[in-house]
Computed example of a mutant assay.
Amino acid sequence: MSTFHLKVVTSDRCFFDGEAERIIVRTTEGDVGILPKHIPYVAALGIGGLTIFHEGTSRVAAVSGGFVQVSAEGTTVLARTCEWADEIDINRAREAAERAKALLHQQLSEHEHDVADVKLKKAVNRIRIAGDK
Rank of each mutant, 00 (worst) to 15 (best):
Gln107Met: 10
His113Cys: 07
Asp117Glu: 10
Ala93Gly: 11
His5Phe: 07
Gly49Cys: 12
Ala130Tyr: 04
Asp31Leu: 03
Glu112Ser: 08
Phe16Met: 02
Phe53Gln: 07
Leu103Cys: 05
Pro40Tyr: 02
Ala20Tyr: 01
Lys119Cys: 12
Glu83Leu: 13
His113Glu: 06
Val70Asp: 01
Arg80Cys: 09
Leu103Phe: 01
Ser58Gly: 10
Ile90Gly: 00
His38Asn: 12
Pro36Lys: 13
Cys14Gln: 14
Val63Leu: 03
Gly46Trp: 07
Leu45Met: 01
Leu35Gly: 14
His111Val: 14
Ser58Tyr: 11
Thr27Cys: 14
Val63Tyr: 00
Cys14Thr: 15
Lys7Ile: 09
Leu50Asp: 01
Val68Arg: 03
Phe53Tyr: 15
Glu83Ala: 12
Ile34Trp: 12
Glu55Arg: 15
Val25Thr: 12
Asp86Gln: 03
Lys7Ser: 14
Pro36Cys: 06
Leu120Thr: 13
Ala43Pro: 10
Gly49Tyr: 11
Val60Tyr: 04
Ile39Arg: 02
Gly65Cys: 06
Thr10Tyr: 06
Asp12Phe: 01
Arg59Cys: 08
Gln69Asn: 09
Ile90His: 04
Ser58Ala: 14
Ile88Asn: 03
Val118His: 13
Phe16Tyr: 11
Ala130His: 05
Val8Asp: 03
Ala43Ile: 04
His113Gly: 08
Ala44Thr: 09
Cys82His: 00
Gly65Tyr: 01
Arg26Gln: 14
Ala97Phe: 00
Arg94Phe: 11
Arg59Val: 15
Ala72Thr: 07
Arg126Gln: 01
Thr27Gln: 08
Ile47Glu: 10
Lys101Thr: 10
Gln69Leu: 07
Phe53His: 14
